[in-house]
C-alpha cells in the first residue's frame, strides 16, 4: 500500500528481484542451492513463463550486495507483474520475501545489487 507501490510500478520490467530469500550459509551448500533454484522456478512458473534465474552466491573478494536475493527473468511483463503481486510478502523458509523490479540491462550484464 501507499507510495512505494506507485514507485515500483512506474519502473515495471520483466525482471523480478526477490529479496530476503536466502542466507549465505544456504548458498554455500550445493544441494541446498539446487533445491532453492527448483523451488523458485516451480513457484514463479505458476505466474508466467520463466526465461532464466540468477541466484548470486558469495564469492571471496566480490561485491556481496546481490547475496540473499533471487532474480527471475520472465518472458513478459504480465508474468513478472503477476509473480510480484503473488509472492510479495509471502514467506520463504520463514523469511518475509520482499520484491522489486530490476533493471534488465544490469541483469544481463550480471550486475546484481
Amino acid at each position: 500500500p501507499g507510495l512505494h507501490n506507485v514507485q515500483s510500478q512506474a519502473t515495471a520490467t520483466e525482471i523480478l528481484c526477490l529479496m530476503n530469500m536466502v542466507t549465505e550459509e544456504e548458498l554455500l551448500d550445493d544441494e541446498e542451492y539446487e533445491d532453492i533454484t527448483e523451488d523458485v522456478k516451480e513457484e514463479c512458473g505458476k505466474f508466467g513463463p520463466v526465461k532464466s534465474i540468477e541466484i548470486p552466491r558469495p564469492r571471496a573478494g566480490q561485491d556481496a550486495s546481490g547475496v540473499g536475493k533471487v532474480y527471475v527473468e520472465f518472458v513478459n511483463l504480465e508474468g513478472c507483474n503477476a509473480a510480484m503481486n503473488a509472492l510479495s510478502g509471502r514467506k520463504f523458509a520463514n523469511r518475509v520475501v520482499l520484491t522489486s523490479f530490476y533493471d534488465p540491462d544490469l541483469y544481463h550484464r550480471r550486475v546484481f545489487n
Binding site: G2, M19, E38, M84
Partner: peptide, 28 residues
C-alpha cells in the same frame, strides 16, 4: 525433494506502513 520442508508459505504477511514491494531507488 518430496521429504523436504515446504519453503514457500501460502499466506501473505502485511505490515502496516512497510510495503513488501521495496522502492527501487534504495542504496544497498
Amino acid at each position: 525433494r518430496a521429504l523436504r520442508k515446504k519453503k514457500w508459505s501460502t499466506d501473505t504477511v502485511s505490515i502496516t506502513g512497510i510495503s513488501t514491494n521495496m522502492p527501487s531507488d534504495l542504496t544497498p
